[in-house]
Simulated assay, not measured.
Amino acid sequence: MKKTLLGFGIVAALTLSACSSGSDPQSASGTPSEITVFAAASLTEVFEDIADEFQNSDPDAPEVKFSFGGSSDLVSQITEGAPADVIATADEKTMGTLEGDDLLAGAPSMFASNTLTLAVAEGNPKSIEGSTDFPGLDLVVCAPQVPCGAATQKWAELNEVELDPVSEENSVTDVLGKVSAGQADAGIVYVTDIARADGQVEQVDLDGADKVINKYPAATVRASEHQEQADSFVKFLGSDSAQKLLRDAGFAAA
């Protein structure tokens, strides 16, 4: 069974509790029974499915608990000492911050890629066909420091599109939420976000999106006390079963 943690505070609290007991949870074989994975918000559903496959693949595999959020926020938390065993981000640049600060146990592994698209309200009531319809729309995007925001800025520059968003969100999940709640006419998200929206939004192809591809890296955190198990999870992301789940969720190969 997986556990999803919604933020650094909960993760930290659990860690303090574990420390007060005198030891980390152990499985019958003596290996740690849990690892903590920090992962980009766009990976939420598929990583939970991958964790199931990971645990089913080996009786000694640890339970995986998650903290999902904007990649830049997760990186900041690890930089400040948040306890994590694995980090998976939505672009290489964000992961590069940890690599540059020597906070990773090894070189990151690319396991998937993603492409931008446009999310519009169900039924597309504004009859939006692409970026030429942006003027006059309530458009939401990710903030520039977030991978989807950096990709959006790059896409706009390459395609000479002027952006005038009504808000900039800290995660792609928040962009999707604004559109599905009717608080925005359209939002720039990943193609995988449309797939996991359960019909609450519709997709409109974003012209020139193929010029900007985000690659997803994962790595073991140097401060992890369970590096062998963390390495196993990172390696599992490249397995046939994990790659199939990623493709089913709309991700492309790295």
Rank of each mutant, 00 (worst) to 15 (best):
T4V: 15
T4S: 14
L6T: 07
G7T: 06
G9M: 10
A12G: 06
A13E: 15
L14Y: 07
T15A: 13
S17F: 11
C19P: 00
S21P: 00
S21C: 08
S21V: 12
G22A: 05
P25S: 07
T31V: 13
P32V: 14
P32C: 11
E34M: 08
I35G: 04
I35M: 04
I35K: 03
T36C: 13
S42H: 10
T44P: 01
T44N: 11
F47N: 10
Q55N: 07
N56D: 14
D58F: 00
P62Y: 12
G70F: 11
S72D: 12
D73I: 06
L74C: 04
S76E: 13
G81R: 10
A82P: 02
A84I: 02
D85K: 06
A88V: 07
T89W: 05
A90I: 01
T94F: 04
L98W: 01
L98E: 01
G100H: 05
L103R: 15
G106D: 14
A107R: 12
P108M: 06
P108G: 03
S113D: 07
T115W: 06
T117L: 08
T117N: 10
T117P: 04
A119T: 12
A119S: 13
V120E: 02
A121T: 08
G123D: 10
N124M: 05
K126R: 12
S127R: 14
I128N: 07
S131R: 06
T132I: 07
D133I: 14
G136S: 11
D138A: 14
A143P: 03
A143Y: 04
P147Q: 05
C148Y: 07
G149T: 09
A150P: 00
A150H: 01
T152R: 11
W155D: 04
A156H: 05
A156N: 03
A156P: 00
E157K: 08
N159S: 10
V161M: 01
V161A: 02
E162Q: 14
L163R: 07
P165N: 05
V166I: 15
V166K: 11
N170W: 03
S171Y: 02
S171D: 08
S171P: 02
S171L: 01
V175Q: 05
L176N: 05
G177E: 14
S180Y: 05
Q183I: 00
D185F: 01
V191F: 09
D193L: 09
D193S: 07
A195E: 15
D198S: 15
G199R: 09
Q200P: 00
D205C: 06
D207K: 13
G208C: 06
A209S: 15
I213N: 12
K215L: 01
Y216S: 09
P217S: 02
T220V: 15
R222D: 11
S224D: 04
E225N: 11
E225I: 00
H226C: 11
Q227M: 11
E228I: 13
A230L: 10
V234G: 11
V234M: 09
V234R: 07
K235Q: 15
S239Q: 10
D240G: 04
R247L: 12
A249R: 09
F251M: 08
A253F: 02
A254F: 04
